[in-house]
Simulated assay, not measured.
Amino acid sequence: MGALTKAAQAEALIRRYFQACNDADHQALLDCFTSNAVHYFPPGLPGAPWRGAQAIADGWVWCVKTMGSRWTIEKVLASSDGHEAVIEWTHWKTALGEVLRGDEWYVFNDDVTRIAEIRAYYASPVNKAETVNKLHDFDYEARGYAMAPPSPPPKLS
C-alpha cells in the first residue's frame, strides 16, 4: 500500500485527535498539536480561545471528566495539499443530557503531522433549554448523522 495523500493524512490526523478526545488521552492530545496551536470558539466559552497544546489537551480532558463528553465526526473535507480541512462534528455531553453540533476549520503544520489551528462554529446558538442543539428542520438521522454517542465516557479519576 502506498503512502497516504496529504488530504488523507490530514483526515487521519483529525480522526486520531477525536479518538484522543474520546479517550481523554492527554499525551495523545498533546501529540496532535503544535506547541503554539490555538483552538478558537464562538463567544461564550470561558477561557476561550485555548492557546497551546497543553491548554487544548487540558480542556478536552476536563470536558470528558466533567460533562461526560463524547464526540463523533460526521463529515470531513480536506484540501488536496493537506494544509486545511473542514469537518462537521457532534459533541455529546452525556452527563448533562445535551448535544451540540457544529463545524471546525483546521490548519495544519507544513508536513501535516500536527494541528496548528482550529476554528469552531456551532450549528446554532447554545440554548440550555434544548437537550439537542441543532440546525432547525435539518434531518440529521436521514442524512446518516450519529444519533447517540459513540460509547460511554471512560472512567477517569
Rank of each mutant, 00 (worst) to 15 (best):
G59R: 03
S124I: 10
F41I: 08
T94Q: 04
S80D: 14
E104C: 10
Y106E: 04
A3F: 15
V132S: 06
A8S: 09
D111W: 09
T94Y: 00
S124M: 09
V86S: 11
P43Q: 06
G52W: 00
K128Q: 11
E104S: 10
D111L: 06
N36D: 14
A12W: 04
E88N: 11
K93H: 15
W50G: 09
Y122N: 12
E84T: 13
L30N: 00
Y40G: 04
M1D: 11
P149I: 01
G59C: 05
A10N: 03
N36H: 12
L135G: 12
S157M: 14
T90N: 00
I14M: 01
Y140L: 06
H136V: 14
T113I: 05
L96W: 13
V86C: 12
A7K: 04
R101A: 05
A57T: 03
Q54M: 12
H26W: 08
P42I: 03
E117F: 06
F108C: 02
H26C: 05
H83Y: 09
K6A: 15
A10R: 01
L135E: 15
W50D: 12
P153M: 01
E74F: 01
G59V: 04
L45M: 13
A85S: 04
A129Y: 11
G68C: 05
F33Y: 08
L135Q: 14
D81S: 03
T113D: 06
D25I: 02
S124L: 08
V99A: 04
S80T: 13
A8M: 10
I118M: 07
L156M: 08
A10K: 02
L96G: 09
T131I: 07
A85E: 04
Q54R: 12
R15H: 07
T90H: 01
K128R: 10
R70S: 07
V38N: 01
D110I: 12
H39Y: 12
L29N: 00
F108D: 02
L156D: 05
A57Y: 01
A148I: 06
T131W: 12
F108N: 00
F33L: 02
V99T: 07
V132D: 06
K134P: 07
T94C: 02
P46Q: 03
A129P: 07
Q9R: 05
V61Y: 01
H136N: 13
W60S: 05
I115Y: 01
G59F: 08
C21W: 09
I14D: 00
E98L: 13
S69Y: 14
A116G: 09
H39P: 05
K93M: 13
P46T: 02
A3T: 14
S69V: 13
S35I: 15
E11G: 06
V76S: 06
K93I: 11
P152L: 08
E117Q: 06
D31A: 04
W62Y: 15
L100T: 13
Q54G: 07
S35P: 15
F138N: 08
A148Q: 08
C21F: 10
